[in-house]
Design a protein around this nucleic acid. Structure first.
Lengths: 163, 163
DNA sequence: ACACAATAGTTGCGAACACAACTATATACA
DNA sequence: TGTATATAGTTGTGTTCGCAACTATTGTGT
């Protein structure tokens, strides 16, 4: 009976998604690690770096990443220890803290990003024709919108910036 | 300067891949957890279940998953504790061990799989037209082959079965 | 104004896993 | 054959992170 599912195309599809993601993730993590960062630390720096003011609340970071609030606390702990971010009080809500990227944090991003996007191109986007890439991203967007309702780009940033 | 990369399409592409994968993974993990398994335990059971003889060596499992040899040891420890697999000696190489799926392990797969593939369809494959799904999978295959050379379906199984 | 519920963030604890060191066995080559 | 090297698997140790419990603050209903 088990063998009925052995080559089920739906399982294969998930396997393909996993292998593509995990394989790319592992290779990119190597480059990031050369700069003393983990992928999640890098992701948080990027999200801070592209926010006006370079700051987000802990809760916003949790909503934008795969981490829980507890996980965000600890990642920010490490980033703060390395002086890549600071915690500053939120004037309008004394329960909240802004995580703010420092000059040193921005400098680290500068050091990582140029080669990083080169590698993405080398291993991912540059491997496909523009049409094939469009098709791929369009499919991924559909899946993303299905499994993460409310994760579309604008919505979370809007929410994050209205506090 | 950092802002130069704020909306770089290559970073966006990776973000989309991550969100699609992590979102789907999290939802599927919930269903698997209802049956007392983690995703990685489920993945290993599936790989064993579809192998002739229901057995693979620890090393093969490590090669087919995102785990190191050490990680495989501990996952198989847990599966063995729950009587879903057993370790048996490899006659041709006394360093090696086969991990063999038990009847109980197959039964667990039976319990999980029907609903599992339904959910994959609901959240992933069924969200796309056949053409769009084909395009998506074709793109993923290209990326997978780039970042995991030698991971094409037949190769590893062939290697695994020739010992 | 006053309880009561909801929310932001942190901390203790435990599970999962990578890395490096280790044992046992197999292979290569001199 | 004997020795060096490579490989299979396990174990000790440290890191990361989720969950639940906790504190502090804010919002809600009366």
């Amino acid at each position: 009976m088990t063998r009925d599912y052995a080559d089920d195309p739906r399982l294969t599809a998930v396997g393909l998604l996993s292998e593509a993601y995990l394989g790319l993730h592992a290779k990119l993590a190597c480059q990031i690690a050369e700069h003393g960062l983990s992928m999640i630390e890098f992701e948080i720096l990027i999200r801070l770096g592209r926010t006006p003011g370079g700051q987000l609340r802990m809760t916003d970071l949790a909503a934008q990443t795969s981490l829980t609030a507890s996980g965000v606390t600890r990642v920010v702990d490490r980033l703060e220890r390395d002086s890549l971010v600071t915690r500053t009080a939120c004037p309008s809500d004394r329960r909240s803290l802004y995580t703010v990227i420092t000059q040193s944090g921005r400098a680290r991003l500068e050091a990582v990003l140029p080669r990083h996007v080169e590698l993405i191109d080398e291993w991912f986007t540059g491997q496909l024709t523009p049409k094939a890439l469009d098709d791929l991203l369009s499919g991924l967007r559909t899946v993303r919108d299905t499994v993460r309702p409310g994760a579309e780009a604008g919505i979370k940033n809007a929410a994050a910036l209205t506090r």
